[in-house]
């Protein structure tokens, strides 16, 4: 089975332009780039939340024209429903999809346990820390077992330590339940540490500067950050982003 996205969008106010991207099934792909490079727009295009103005988006050879249920979305903020318990927030996905929540209860509990939230099922979101709330949001996205997980700077609002912790947590979950993940981030180390492939984007209009295949062993560990290869990757990404900035500054 092969999974392909082809996204092309231009004209008007070009948020992203001339983007061609192929992503294989179960690949962990991170999108990294400066603010305003259209990373989030790209995710919305893939999710079918925004129509493309040119080109096509394909998921498993089906052209995406509207939102489809086989996708899970995690945003920068957890956006949980404050009146629902942790468990009911996870089951929200099933309810909204028109499925019977009772059939998904067992899976929801498993997911919560997998993300270290066992014992918190009946708590309300406000009783949880930001990091825990974001774990609940991830469980909600994973509940219908989507083949594709779209994450829009999911750890962007968290402190650096929680961020790192959740990154490895996500890798662990991903190991247990393989999915294709498209993960937007501002953080270069995060992009490299998590990904099979890093898509470096430049802004105005958003373009893909380079797709870098990350050849680092899995499972990934914190120590990798001191690896020479890691350093080389991160220099490469940084170089691409700053080169585009310099080019723009010169043009001005």
């Amino acid at each position: 089975m092969e999974k392909t996205y082809r996204t092309r969008r231009g004209d008007l106010v070009p948020a992203v332009e001339g983007i061609t991207l192929d992503i294989a099934e179960n690949e962990f792909v991170t999108l990294v780039g400066p603010s305003g490079c259209g990373k989030s727009t790209l995710l919305k295009l893939v999710a079918g939340l925004t129509p493309v103005s040119g080109g096509t988006v394909r998921v498993r050879d089906t052209v995406v024209r509207e939102p489809f249920p086989d996708v899970g979305i995690v945003f920068q903020h957890p956006v949980l429903l404050p009146w629902r318990t942790v468990l009911d927030n996870v089951l929200f996905a099933a309810e909204m999809l028109g499925l019977d929540p009772d059939d998904h209860r067992k899976r929801a509990l498993e997911l919560l346990e997998l993300s270290g939230l066992a014992g918190f099922e009946t708590r309300l979101p406000r009783e949880l820390s930001g990091g825990m709330q974001q774990r609940v949001a991830i469980c909600r996205a994973l509940l219908p077992d989507p083949t594709l997980l779209l994450m829009d700077e999911p750890f962007g609002a968290l402190d650096a330590m929680t961020r790192e912790e959740l990154g490895f947590e996500l890798l662990r979950i991903w190991d247990a339940r393989r999915k294709t993940i498209l993960f937007v981030t501002h953080s270069i180390p995060e992009a490299i540490l998590l990904a099979d492939k890093v898509v470096v984007m430049t802004s105005r209009p958003g373009r893909v500067a380079r797709v870098i295949t990350i050849d680092l062993p899995r499972p990934r560990t914190v120590e990798l950050e001191f690896d020479a290869k890691f350093k080389a990757y991160s220099d490469e990404v940084r170089g691409l982003i700053f080169a585009s900035r310099r080019a723009r500054a010169d043009a001005r």
Partner: peptide, 14 residues
């Protein structure tokens, strides 16, 4: 309503 929640609902085709 946070726009993300509306997008989420849309993605569920609710």
């Amino acid at each position: 309503t946070p726009p993300e929640l509306l997008e989420l609902s849309r993605s569920y085709r609710a």
